[in-house]
């Protein structure tokens, strides 16, 4: 249990650092650290497969792309957009509403007893696969179609327009 508190503290610390650092590249690096603590959380929850997938997909691929883009953009003080007072007020209002929503939803929630998993093998690849492909086959396939359509869209965007190329 103490391990959980340590990791939870670290993940909150890193996620706060993501917001509070000025340099966007540092932000991304702290975000990577945050995802790493999430991976540890998954392992603590006996979900090895999810942990490793979180590790590969988020830390290994998505954050690399984030870092990639930030390095290419080379953000610094000069390129920072103007911070007008109007923007600040809008930000405060938006953040406040989000906070109110969160607090009220947490208040409305009924807390239940801590769920304990009796089966320590539940997070293994085989069990997860059986659940996904038997009980949740339809949602699984639909989400894959969603990803496929996103991919087709990306390819379409990246493709050269023949008319502009010739003309």
């Amino acid at each position: 249990m103490s391990l959980f508190y340590l990791v939870a503290f670290l993940s909150i610390l890193f996620s706060l650092l993501v917001i509070f650092t000025k340099n966007p590249v540092y932000s991304v690096l702290y975000l990577i650290a945050t995802f790493f603590t999430f991976t540890i959380h998954y392992i603590l929850l006996n979900a090895q497969f999810l942990a490793i997938v979180n590790f590969i997909v988020y830390m290994g691929a998505i954050m690399v792309l984030f870092l990639f883009v930030l390095m290419l953009m080379n953000l610094n003080k000069d390129t920072e957009p103007m911070k007008s007072n109007l923007l600040k007020i809008a930000g405060v209002i938006a953040g406040g509403t989000l906070l109110v929503t969160l607090v009220s939803s947490i208040k409305a929630l009924q807390t239940s007893a801590v769920a304990t998993t009796t089966n320590s093998q539940i997070g293994l690849v085989g069990n997860l696969g059986k659940v996904l492909f038997r009980e949740f086959l339809l949602p699984f396939e639909i989400s894959s179609i969603l990803l496929l359509s996103a991919m087709v869209g990306a390819v379409l965007l990246a493709k050269k327009d023949k008319r502009t190329q010739n003309g």
Partner: peptide
């Protein structure tokens, strides 16, 4: 998958 994750890291 672990090897895969380490490689991607």
């Amino acid at each position: 998958l672990y090897i895969f994750g380490v490689v991607s890291l």
